[in-house]
Design a protein around this nucleic acid. Structure first.
Lengths: 337, 337
DNA sequence: GCCCATCGTGTTAGCGCTAACACTGACGCG
DNA sequence: CGCGTCAGTGTTAGCGCTAACACGATGGGC
């Protein structure tokens, strides 16, 4: 019925050569005469031939597929990362399979990794921003190339990460420089590495400036949690500056403050993190920290591809940190005395 | 060095059976004694064996991989869809490879599809919300299972779609019911199918109510474009109700109105579309239309899997529409006369 | 003129798996 | 007691490809 797709032998027959010569042309081997190369290429286009990745993967033991393990790719950060990763991979001739997990616990991660392994991916990129994720990853055979993104800096896995500490430092310092006595911090979920880094950067900046370190306001990444935090902060007259661990949190804070009649930035300054595309259109436009997701993606892929190429144990000590940029808008200003 | 992963023959040797019996156990064939089955399963776990997907794909001519073609998976809609799709696929034992494209033009789509085909995906789901995307898809051999999501209803490709028209109708009718004379519409990008559907629903509701149909305010999906549209609308005293084609657009409108001192909802009512997670924390909380992305994903996958199972030309006439829900918050109210 | 290196090409084996078929032994039936 | 049936298992071929090797033709150095 459906005539099967043309295989290499079909091309070879049409071009009057052996299938091995076709393979050589396809893989850019030397020692093929121009004449033959042209004939083969003509045959390929005539038949609409395209190599069978499965067969290739079988014989080489390795596919041009990269497995990405991620949780909740609906969040802005992971989604951006994934998109950038996919694009970078496509440029390098790889495709990306995604294995997302409901929870970032050990078992879910392990299952996602297993699924990728079953398909003999060439390597794995894990967007694993929580502490527990590392265990499953560390159990992986060292022969399979691996890069973690926004993972735990205390593990010895190859890691590419946004410099959370530096970003938080910039945000906090910016507020201090504007003249605020201290800065309050609404945090992300406690088990996320990103949260920890942002807390660290915030705290160390405060300490370095000799400012008082107020208690943390715990939250998750949602606008809803930000709103709750904001309701609390709005009732405390001594609060003049807030650093929210991400933009959605900041949005919630903004609305809570607005509802309580506290003006931003006149009464309270707010700074976020992520620079979501709509951050410039919050009320007021949000001063925030912009991570370079494209750079992170490119770097991760480079690291992975070099592991794939070397096919060796070059996993230790690989660590790349990408510094984010402060984007100044209108949500932070000098405090009114 | 790296001892190669165990293959089926290794399992067979350990269990004292032929590799074919192992295969039978793996694929749940009948005519294997319980005794043997147990021995084989024990051997599998002992060796940590996992079947090689590439080999299986090679011999069956079909992998348990689904290719998703999408553009800009950073946008909330596509990202949600992708995540839901991935989850549904995982439950069915499939993995998802993503082939995102920079532009949704014919050529980019074709390239992404080609990449998927090279890996012998079992089927393709195209999130193809622009008109031009259909051409590349229609050229696909009919033997490969295909589902389009939010695609062009005028094509004969299998389609699962959010009922844009119904959603827009609900939004518009809601505003009319509140007592507004008419409703202005800020549109999405002109070549998107979604935009067209939302315009249609809006227009037909206005017409049915005998309301005047104001000119369209063209935009794209960004908060920035919404802001520009809002600046225009803010200067027009006759405008009392605005339906924005998505939430980010609405956010931009909200800020523009705020800057111009026009209160929402007292002076102008605004309704959005998408119900992004933070929509409830805009200022004011946004009344909007919520599509059920999970349902769309599940439906798409079902449609695809049934095509894969039947492996036949069941492609015509398949069409599923998922009605969205109006979420009423505070951004729309009766006009003050 | 001989040898060897180099180029260009073909031949063979085998990656890990499933499908098709072959085989064995136990059982039921007339 | 011979025969067919069928559960349970093994044997073989081959999916489409690459790696390894084999082979003939050419040409340059002695």
């Amino acid at each position: 019925m459906t005539t099967r797709a043309p295989a290499m032998t079909d091309v070879a027959r049409l071009a009057g050569v052996s299938h091995q010569t076709v393979s050589r042309v396809l893989n850019g081997h030397p020692y093929v005469s121009d004449h033959t190369r042209l004939r083969v290429q003509a045959a390929i286009t005539e038949l609409g031939y395209r190599p069978n990745g499965a067969a290739r993967a079988l014989v080489t033991g390795q596919s041009r597929v990269i497995g990405v393990v991620a949780q909740n790719t609906t969040l802005y950060g992971p989604a951006s990362l994934l998109a950038a990763l996919e694009q970078a991979a496509a440029e390098a001739g790889f495709v990306v399979t995604i294995g997302s997990v409901g929870d970032l616990d050990d078992q879910s991660i392990a299952a996602a990794v297993e699924r990728h392994l079953a398909h003999r991916v060439a390597g794995i990129i894990a967007i694993a921003p929580v502490e527990s994720a590392g265990d499953a990853l560390e159990r992986l055979p060292r022969s399979i190339p691996l890069v973690t993104v926004d993972g735990d800096p205390h593990r010895s896995l190859p890691l590419v990460t946004v410099d959370q500490v530096a970003g938080a430092r910039e945000a906090t310092q910016h507020l201090l420089d504007l003249g605020h006595r201290t800065v309050w911090h609404v945090t992300g979920p406690p088990n996320w590495i990103d949260s920890a880094g942002r807390i660290e950067g915030w705290r160390e900046t405060l300490l370095a400036a000799g400012a008082q370190v107020p208690p943390l306001i715990p939250a998750d990444w949602s606008a809803s949690a930000g709103f709750q935090a904001g309701q609390m902060l709005a009732r405390m007259p001594e609060v003049t500056a807030v650093f929210a661990a991400n933009d959605h949190l900041a949005l919630g804070v903004l609305r809570a403050l607005h509802e309580h009649g506290r003006r931003v930035p006149q009464d309270i300054s707010v700074v976020g993190f992520d620079d979501v595309p709509e951050a410039g259109f919050f009320i007021p436009p949000l001063t925030t920290v912009r991570p370079d997701f494209k750079a992170v993606a490119r770097m991760s892929l480079d690291l992975l591809l070099s592991q794939i190429a070397d096919s060796g144990d070059h996993r230790d000590g690989l660590r790349q940190t990408i510094a984010p940029t402060l984007i100044v808008r209108n949500s932070a200003s000098a405090p009114s005395i």
